[in-house]
Each structure stands twice: as C-alpha cells, then as structure tokens.
Computed example of a mutant assay.
Amino acid sequence: MAQTQAQAPATVGTAGCVMARGAAELTSALRRLGPHAIACPGDVAGPAHLEEGVAGTVAEFGRLDIVGSNAAISAPLGR
C-alpha cells in the first residue's frame, strides 16, 4: 500500500524519499518510482531517521511537499 501511495504523486511530477528498514524494500520501491525518488533507510519509529529523511529530501529536491506514512504494528496493542 505504501508503494502505491508513493507512486501516485510521482505520476504528476513530484519527487520524494522512500523510507524503509530493509534494503530489498527500498530497492524495489526505487525501481518502480524512477529518478524522482531517493532512498532513506530507516525506521519511521525513530525520530532521528525521520529528521534524516526530511533533510535528505530537501537537500536532493530543494523542498518537501507531502509526507505520508504506512507504518504498522504487527502485535496486538496492550501486550
């Protein structure tokens, strides 16, 4: 789902950062999104990773227009 969300803005010319913990997920997403995306390895649960992703996006493209997240929890809450 996150990759579908990332593809929609790319079809209208926006660019962005794809953040994932695993190299395979990043490689797959970047292949689909093409030259208008950069890899931002990290975990969205880590504030430092988010800051690095924003800084990298601004450094590469000069701005940040949209932020989207598709983070999930795989265990029931409260455990």
Rank of each mutant, 00 (worst) to 15 (best):
M1R: 11
M1N: 08
A2R: 12
A2V: 05
A2F: 09
Q3W: 06
Q3P: 03
Q3T: 10
T4G: 13
T4S: 11
T4R: 11
T4H: 10
Q5C: 07
Q5K: 03
A6F: 02
A6M: 09
Q7S: 09
A8V: 15
A8R: 15
A8S: 04
P9Y: 05
A10I: 14
T11L: 11
T11S: 11
V12N: 07
V12H: 13
G13P: 13
G13C: 12
A15N: 07
A15F: 00
A15W: 00
G16T: 12
C17L: 11
C17G: 11
V18D: 02
M19T: 12
M19Y: 00
M19E: 01
M19H: 05
A20W: 03
A20F: 00
R21F: 00
G22Y: 03
G22K: 15
G22S: 15
A23Y: 02
A23E: 15
A23T: 14
A24V: 05
A24T: 07
A24P: 00
E25I: 01
E25S: 13
L26W: 01
L26I: 08
S28C: 03
A29Y: 02
A29V: 08
L30H: 02
L30W: 02
L30C: 02
L30E: 02
R32K: 11
P35Y: 00
A37N: 08
A37P: 13
A37I: 09
A37L: 03
I38C: 04
I38R: 07
C40A: 14
P41A: 05
P41Q: 06
G42R: 07
G42E: 01
G42C: 04
D43T: 07
D43I: 04
D43A: 04
D43S: 11
V44I: 11
V44A: 15
V44M: 07
A45H: 06
P47Q: 06
A48P: 02
A48T: 08
A48F: 01
A48D: 12
H49N: 13
L50A: 06
E52W: 01
G53W: 00
G53I: 01
V54L: 02
A55I: 01
G56R: 12
G56A: 03
G56T: 06
T57R: 05
T57I: 03
T57V: 03
V58H: 01
V58W: 00
V58S: 02
V58C: 04
A59I: 03
A59Q: 05
A59T: 07
E60M: 09
F61N: 06
F61W: 09
F61I: 09
G62W: 07
G62K: 10
R63F: 04
R63K: 13
L64T: 10
D65H: 14
I66T: 11
V67P: 14
V67F: 12
G68D: 12
G68W: 11
S69R: 09
N70T: 14
N70C: 10
N70V: 11
N70M: 08
A71W: 09
A72W: 15
A72L: 12
A72Q: 14
A72N: 14
A72H: 13
I73E: 15
I73L: 15
S74G: 09
S74A: 11
S74K: 11
A75H: 10
A75W: 06
P76Q: 07
P76I: 14
P76E: 13
P76F: 10
P76K: 08
L77T: 12
L77C: 06
L77W: 12
G78H: 07
G78Q: 06
R79D: 10
